[in-house]
């Protein structure tokens, strides 16, 4: 994605001004989650507008603060979320006149023209409709945030998958499959090695979760000697990990579990995966 073009599109200004649509708001929230540059721009814009707003102050009456704080309960909290209250109000308003009408109807039923009953019926229908609409709205809102979460996850997956695809397609990278050893037969890691620049990146398909105080460390075997390639970020799932450069003449790669920060030489009993070039 072209981040600069996205920032220049003006959507962030809309977001910060509050003029963006719900969908655009979700989108900016997602994007700023994925791209630090976008997050930075949103934050700087928010800070500027905050400073701008703070320069335009008008103090409410002194009494107001006391009135408001008298309504707040700091021992028990606000209780249940009130956003549904607003949606219940139309129902109440609809109900009150109905009850009123029903009472009167009972008293002077015979003299009442037919339309009053129809009005009551219409009122009931309206009340039901309002309730239904409120319910739908809530469901929709829920669906919307679910959607945003899914989109967020998909964006992350997509970025990861396309980075992987690029590596597979790039002829300058050689893929080396590191397979699980006795210690952990199910483990599997792919190393992509550029044998002219000696750059190496890793894609961990499966490795056991890292125990506390430990870290995985990558080694390359050059002329039969293990060379430290650095420790792996323990949050390696669905990420392309960049490690140190190797040396020409690399014959194999291996990963061992070491103390946090890594060791000068590999602990052979703790070797999890290995792959020959």
């Amino acid at each position: 994605m072209n981040i600069e073009a996205y920032i220049a599109s003006g959507i962030i200004e809309d977001y910060v001004l509050g003029t963006a649509s719900e969908q655009e708001k979700q989108e900016v929230a997602c994007m700023s989650h994925i791209y630090p540059e976008i997050k930075e721009e949103v934050l700087r814009m928010e800070e500027a507008m905050e400073a701008y707003a703070l320069k335009h102050q008008k103090a409410p009456s002194k009494q107001l603060k006391a009135n408001i704080f008298a309504k707040m309960d700091f021992d028990n909290g606000p209780g249940t979320e009130e956003s549904t209250d607003a949606k219940i109000i139309p129902l109440d308003k609809g109900n009150t006149p109905i009850e009123h009408n029903v009472e009167k109807d009972a008293q002077v039923a015979s003299t009442r023209p037919k339309w009053t009953k129809m009005a009551v019926a219409a009122g009931l229908v309206l009340a039901l409709l309002a309730g239904w609409a409120a319910y739908q709205l809530k469901a929709l809102n829920g669906a919307n945030s679910d959607m945003a979460e899914r989109m967020e996850r998909m964006e992350v997956e997509l970025a990861y998958n396309s980075a992987l695809a690029d590596l597979y397609r790039d002829p300058s990278y050689k893929m080396v499959r590191l397979v699980g050893l006795e210690k952990s037969p199910e483990s599997s890691v792919s190393a992509f090695w550029n044998d002219s620049s000696q750059e190496v990146v890793l894609d961990v398909q499966k490795l056991p979760a890292v125990p506390a105080g430990k870290q995985y460390q990558l080694w390359s075997i050059v002329d039969g000697v293990p060379v430290d390639m650095g420790v792996l970020d323990s949050d390696f799932d669905k990420k392309i990990l960049k490690v140190k450069k190797t040396k020409p003449g690399t014959s194999a790669f291996a990963i061992t579990l070491e103390q946090e920060g890594g060791s000068p030489t590999p602990t052979m009993e703790e070797m999890y995966v290995m792959g020959n070039v």
């Binding site: 929230a29 928010e46 905050e50 409410p60 309504k71 707040m72 009130e82 956003s83």
Partner: peptide
């Protein structure tokens, strides 16, 4: 003044929903 009161109570009641990841408190 009435709206201000409504706003501040809403902020109080909805505070659990505010997610700092999504932007600054003031926004």
């Amino acid at each position: 003044g009435d709206v201000m009161q409504e706003v501040f109570l809403k902020i109080w009641k909805r505070m659990a929903l505010y997610n700092p990841e999504k932007g600054r408190l003031f926004t």
